[in-house]
Amino acid sequence: MPRTRADLMAFLDGLGIQTKTVDHPPLYTVEQSQALRGEIAGAHTKNLFVKDKKGRYFLLTVGEEAEVDLKTVHQLIGASGRVSFGKPDALMELLGVQPGAVTALGVINDTSGLVTLVLDAGLMQNEIVNCHPLTNEATTSIASNDLVRFAEATGHAPLVLNLATA
């Protein structure tokens, strides 16, 4: 059973990580979430759940305006051949989220360490990063260095790479 938003918040609290969460109607796209600009400070994210030809999974977290070249990103992240989008059932099984709620915080559910978290270096230059707290009905603001600390506490040493092409 995947961890819940409450489980996530308790885990973050246990690490001494302060966050701020704003509830809102469900958001499924970056365009929908842009309606909240001004209400929620910090960098907003876009997440790509992909797999390579050998079945290895990657979660790419970039700034909402960033473009990622899916034809060449495999060379940056160490994937075997070009990547394709992971299926919704794998997303739920590995990260415990539905499409539209994909988040770097989902690695809390990847207890087997099957997903490589890759954070865009440009995104991580921001003091605050905004992520869904395992649901697309809220946005959680977390310090970028605390996002790394959280990922490491879940057993995921995130790669911080220049993923964005624009």
Results as ranks from 00 to 15, higher is better:
T29V: 01
T29A: 04
T29G: 01
V30R: 10
E31T: 10
E31Y: 10
S33F: 05
S33Y: 07
Q34C: 05
Q34H: 08
Q34L: 13
A35F: 00
I40C: 07
I40W: 09
A41I: 08
G42N: 14
G42P: 15
A43M: 09
T45C: 14
N47H: 03
D52N: 12
D52Q: 14
D52V: 10
K54A: 11
G55N: 11
G55Q: 08
Y57K: 13
Y57P: 04
F58V: 01
L59F: 07
L59C: 07
L60A: 04
T61N: 05
T61H: 01
T61R: 06
V62P: 04
G63K: 02
G63R: 05
E64L: 10
E64T: 12
L70G: 14
L70V: 05
L70A: 08
V73G: 07
V73T: 00
G78Q: 03
A79I: 07
G81M: 10
G81P: 11
G81S: 00
R82F: 00
F85D: 06
G86C: 01
K87P: 00
P88F: 00
P88R: 08
A90C: 02
A90I: 01
A90P: 01
E93F: 01
L94P: 14
L94M: 13
L94C: 09
L95Q: 12
L95H: 00
L95V: 04
V97Y: 11
Q98E: 12
P99Q: 05
P99A: 02
V102A: 04
T103W: 08
A104N: 05
T111S: 13
T111L: 05
S112N: 13
S112E: 14
V115R: 01
T116C: 03
L117E: 04
V118Q: 02
V118W: 06
D120V: 10
A121I: 11
A121Q: 14
L123H: 09
M124Q: 01
N126H: 15
N126S: 14
E127Y: 08
V129R: 05
N130K: 10
N136Q: 03
A138C: 05
A138K: 12
T140E: 08
T140H: 03
S144I: 14
N145P: 08
N145A: 08
N145V: 11
L147V: 13
V148W: 03
R149E: 03
R149H: 06
R149F: 04
F150R: 00
A151M: 09
